[in-house]
Design a binder for these strands. Structure first.
Lengths: 168, 168
DNA sequence: TGCTAATATTTCGATATCGAATACTTCGCA
DNA sequence: TGCGAAGTATTCGATATCGAAATATTAGCA
């Protein structure tokens, strides 16, 4: 039997200690490490759920990107949004189109460009998956009061607003 | 020219709206969406930095997992920690061992098990990369006061503490 | 002890992803 | 208008990843 995998809390504690030791600022590392740990867990849960829907994580990323954008996107934009090489997107879209979840329509005004959009079936898949994941997400925040959730969201949104200034 | 890719802030706003419309709770979605958006941006920045060090994101995940754990780990544990299939870890470790960044040592007490640990070169790579990434991470939190960072960290750590109870 | 189930890693064939090269269109500007 | 530069999607060969099967060891228990 393997040594038990440590708890997320323990992993977090050790990670912060390691980063601080390596020269990172503690207040920074506590936040960054926690954010990444939370995302990793969420990704694991989503992955399980997506197996049932027979969608890969990559395909799901495309569906959510389209849903969240609220408008048609180009393959390049989807590649950027889902952190994948543009050439990989071609194949993903082929598979998704084959299953009738997305639709490619050429741009009449610029014939180098193609717009990708969700079909009705794509939207339906999105809805089903969201209703499933909201449950787990609510559980995650269970220990926070309404006020705390609001404060957490506010602080994170301050950080989000900063992102675009940085990578410019 | 493509339509300008929307700002992270705008993407966040739309994403929350979409999830709420699809039946998610707003206070939950504001937090979850922000956390995921932040991680995505961080991943993009790390990726750029890692190109210079000639390490893939997957390899880097192994190095950091070992550094953060503070002890040797098995291939299975590393696969779990880095969200990858156990069979994929074999090849990753081959490459990392070839480059002298990690070391495989069989467990004397259980001969089905192998312990993977960072070599001195592996630790050195870790230190170099961390010093680079702490800069960008500090920038991200620039708009928060010390008190706010502490509060943000505290709230996230409450959430982290909850994670293990859930997937059991 | 002997046998079955469980654990841990690796191998193997199929598929997905990557980076570079390709094909085509549009833009900028002389 | 014409022509080189830039933008956009795709193709292509090499590599990484996946899930299932194979291999080997250990644990549980009659």
């Amino acid at each position: 039997m393997a040594k038990r995998t440590p708890s997320a809390q323990e992993l977090h504690r050790r990670a912060v200690a390691t980063y601080v030791k390596a020269g990172g600022e503690e207040s920074v590392q506590r936040v960054i490490t926690a954010v990444q740990g939370l995302t990793k867990k969420l990704d694991q849960w989503y992955a399980r759920q997506l197996v049932d829907l027979e969608v890969t994580a990559g395909e799901w990323a495309v569906v959510t990107s389209l849903a969240k954008a609220g408008e048609a996107l180009t393959p390049s934009q989807l590649a950027e949004l889902t952190n994948v090489a543009p050439s990989s997107m071609t194949h993903r879209l082929d598979k998704l189109a084959e299953r009738g979840l997305v639709e490619r329509t050429p741009d009449a005004e610029n014939r180098t460009r193609i717009y990708v959009s969700l079909t009705d079936a794509g939207w339906q898949l999105f809805s089903v998956a969201i209703r499933g994941s909201d449950v787990v997400e609510s559980d995650v925040l269970q220990d926070l009061s309404d006020a705390e959730r609001g404060e957490l969201a506010r602080l994170l949104e301050v950080v989000i607003a900063r992102l675009d200034d940085i990578d410019a």
